[in-house]
Design a protein around this nucleic acid. Structure first.
Lengths: 120, 120
DNA sequence: TGAACGTATGAACAGTTATTCATATGAAAG
DNA sequence: CTTTCATATGAATAACTGTTCATACGTTCA
């Protein structure tokens, strides 16, 4: 029985081999799980959550968001880029100004569910 | 007009002062927003997502989870600690073994919503 | 009581990430 | 074409986070 030697002997004794196998078969692919974690990672930052909350109510330009959240234009712009890459916001240009808005209303659902959990 | 000098002049010209004010009034408290981000942060790690997925199907001991995910017992234990602190999992002891399970079924909802978004 | 074993935990290290600063891009107005 | 202004972006830095390693804790069994 030459298996991984780093792993402790628990592996051989361990209790629920049948359960482990069954669960293993029902797991999503590694890639899906990484994508999913990356998706939630976007919500895991205060600045980005704030931006999303702001956009819940109204489309808004970068400058306005920065003022509202009392942060620099650059910081907001960087975060908007992240949100854009994850397809959570979209934008339209109007002269010099760029207006951002939510690209998907069911983002609201996810955040609201999170809020519910927070409020016990 | 002596206000913050770090902020660019955009602040004074900027377009939607009325909108900004209105949105500002409807924002949750800073504390709530931080808590919310912290909550989502837990889902933003591949290992933790995997653990949660595993526990969707069955309660399981630390050792089994480690084997299933091909990670060290220590790594899993550390992450379970995080999940425990966020009230996402609960545990029961049976002799030397500790079994973990989901503490709240509506976690499933959140993750499923995330999956839906991933799958476009 | 001592050995065995499953789990927990602190410290250290490596990798990641958010903000800042300086500067670039792109559009409008003169 | 030059200036002004809103936004974007690359590089650098500081803070955070996940894993590993060593070890401690707590339970069972002899």
């Amino acid at each position: 029985m030459t298996k991984k030697n780093e792993v402790e002997q628990c592996e051989f004794i361990c209790i629920h081999e049948n359960v482990v196998k069954k669960v293993q078969d029902h797991m999503p692919t590694e890639e899906k799980l990484i994508d999913l974690a990356d998706f939630f990672k976007v919500f895991g930052d205060t600045t980005r959550i704030k931006i999303l909350y702001v956009l819940f109510q109204s489309e808004m330009c970068v400058c306005d968001i920065a003022n509202l959240l009392n942060m620099t234009q650059s910081a907001i712009s960087h975060q908007l880029r992240t949100l854009k890459q994850m397809q959570l916001v979209k934008f339209r240009r109007e002269g010099k100004t760029v207006f951002y808005s939510l690209s998907d209303s069911h983002i609201k659902t996810i955040i609201n569910q999170g809020m519910e959990h927070i409020n016990e």
